[in-house]
Amino acid sequence: MKKIKYLAMLAMIYSGLSAQQNVILPVNGKVNKDTGTEERTLTMDPKSDSRTVYNVTVPSLAIYKPEGVASNGTAVLVVPGGAFHILAYDDEGVKIARSLTAKGYTAAVLKYRLVKLDNKDPFGKLMQNAKNFDVLESIMAPVVPLAIADGKEAMKYLKKNAATLGFDKEKIGVIGFSAGGTIAAAIALDKEVRPLFSAPIYPYLGPVMKTPVPSDPPPVFTAVAEDDDFGFDVNSAKFYQNWKAGNGLAELHIYTKGRHGFASKTQGLPVDHWEERLMEWLSSQNIK
Rank of each mutant, 00 (worst) to 15 (best):
K156S: 13
K238L: 11
K116G: 03
M279A: 09
A237Y: 07
A223F: 08
K5R: 14
G166F: 03
I148A: 05
V94K: 05
M9W: 13
G73M: 06
A188I: 02
Y255Q: 01
E39Q: 15
A263L: 02
G166M: 05
D150R: 05
I254S: 04
G246V: 08
A108Y: 10
K33C: 01
T35I: 11
E192S: 12
L189V: 06
A141C: 01
I148F: 05
T211R: 08
P122K: 04
V56I: 12
K156H: 11
P212I: 10
V78D: 02
F84A: 08
A184T: 06
K116F: 10
G173N: 07
V76D: 05
I96C: 06
I86T: 15
V135E: 14
E92F: 04
S18A: 14
A11E: 08
A130E: 09
I86R: 04
A186T: 03
Q241N: 12
V271G: 04
G246Y: 12
M127H: 05
I4L: 14
K244V: 15
P270E: 03
A154P: 05
T35F: 00
N119R: 00
N132Y: 07
A184L: 03
Q267H: 04
R277E: 13
A149C: 03
D90G: 10
V143S: 03
G36D: 04
K111S: 11
F239Q: 12
L7Q: 15
G81N: 08
M1S: 11
D91P: 00
Q21F: 12
L278G: 07
P26W: 08
I96T: 15
D91E: 14
V271C: 04
V208D: 06
P142F: 11
P46E: 08
D45E: 10
T266G: 06
F197A: 03
P122G: 08
N129P: 01
T101A: 11
S215T: 14
A179N: 04
D150N: 13
I287F: 05
K288I: 10
K125S: 10
V144G: 00
V144R: 02
M44C: 05
K288T: 13
R51E: 14
L189G: 05
T35E: 15
V78W: 10
L146D: 12
K2A: 12
F232K: 01
Y255A: 09
T41Q: 13
D227Q: 06
P270T: 11
A199I: 05
L25C: 07
N235A: 11
A185N: 01
V234A: 09
G104L: 04
R194M: 11
M12E: 13
S284Y: 00
K95N: 13
F221L: 14
T41I: 11
P142M: 08
F239M: 15
G124V: 03
T37N: 08
F133M: 06
G246Q: 09
I287V: 15
A147L: 02
D168H: 04
G93T: 04
N242S: 14
V69F: 01
F262Y: 07
F123R: 03
G248N: 02
D121Y: 06
V69L: 08
K47P: 02
A88T: 12
A62L: 07
L100H: 03
